[in-house]
Simulated assay, not measured.
Amino acid sequence: MPLHVPPAPAPALRSVLAALGSPTAVREARTPALRAAQGPTTPELPLPVHVLEGLTAPGPATTRLTGWRFLIRCGDRAVAAAETMLTPDGWTFSHFFEGPYVASTELALQQAETLQQPFQPRLLSIPGLYMLALWLHGDTTCDGTEGRPADTDLLVPLAPAPPGIAAHLPHRVADLLPVLALRASRLPLLGSPAA
């Protein structure tokens, strides 16, 4: 079933396009693959980035939207990603980056396309475990900026995943969140890959 990718806010997309068109922004980015790209680069697959909060607290965990992430494609693969953030003036470009989460996100999205149920893809950062997951939300009609993981939603840990958590293996939220909460309660706070 095809994924229902939510549309990014127009100002977020415009800010990424402006940054891609700026030789200074691309040259100063810590992304050798983006600087070395041969041919046009395009932002694709905008995903809302949510941070999971209250994982170890009593009651249901909540999420907070922190930005939109675009995979930057050159040719047939993603070479980098661009992150946007919300400021008092609206959505704006934050930074370019590359690394294992770019390829891992692309792979997880390809795997999700083969599932039988339609989903809305999002990214979920899990602070304390320094973990990022593709969040496959079952409500494909919402705008992607609100909500919390439903028990029947799927989480696909991206590589590198914390020790003992298999990357690219989909888990129901009801099954994975209790495991993550237990693990997070036993570790010192590590931070978030998307805070």
Score class of each variant (00 low, 15 high):
Met1Ile: 12
Ala10Glu: 15
Pro11Thr: 03
Pro11Lys: 09
Ala12Arg: 02
Ala12Met: 07
Ala29Asn: 05
Ala29Lys: 12
Thr31Ile: 04
Leu34Asn: 04
Ala36Glu: 15
Gly39Val: 07
Pro43Met: 03
Pro48Ser: 05
Val49Phe: 07
His50Ala: 11
Glu53Val: 07
Glu53Ile: 05
Leu55Tyr: 06
Ala57Ile: 00
Pro60Val: 08
Pro60Ile: 01
Arg64Thr: 15
Leu65Asn: 07
Trp68His: 12
Cys74Leu: 04
Val79His: 06
Ala80Met: 11
Ala81Arg: 12
Ala82Gln: 03
Glu83Thr: 14
Glu83His: 10
Leu86Lys: 13
Asp89His: 14
Phe93Trp: 08
Phe93Arg: 05
Ser94Tyr: 14
Phe97Trp: 14
Glu98Tyr: 06
Glu98Cys: 05
Tyr101His: 14
Thr105Lys: 03
Ala108Arg: 07
Gln111Leu: 14
Ala112Tyr: 07
Thr114Trp: 06
Leu115Met: 11
Phe119Leu: 07
Pro121Trp: 04
Leu123Thr: 04
Ser125Arg: 09
Ile126Thr: 09
Ile126His: 02
Trp135Gln: 00
Leu136Gln: 00
His137Gln: 12
His137Leu: 01
Gly138Arg: 14
Gly138Glu: 13
Asp139Gln: 05
Thr140Glu: 10
Thr145Asn: 02
Glu146Pro: 00
Gly147Trp: 08
Val156Arg: 00
Ala161Cys: 09
Pro163Asn: 08
Ile165Gly: 03
Leu169Cys: 06
His171Asn: 09
Val173Leu: 00
Asp175Ile: 00
Leu177Ala: 00
Leu180Gln: 06
Arg183Gln: 14
Leu190Ser: 08
Gly191Glu: 09
Ser192Gly: 15
Ala194Lys: 11
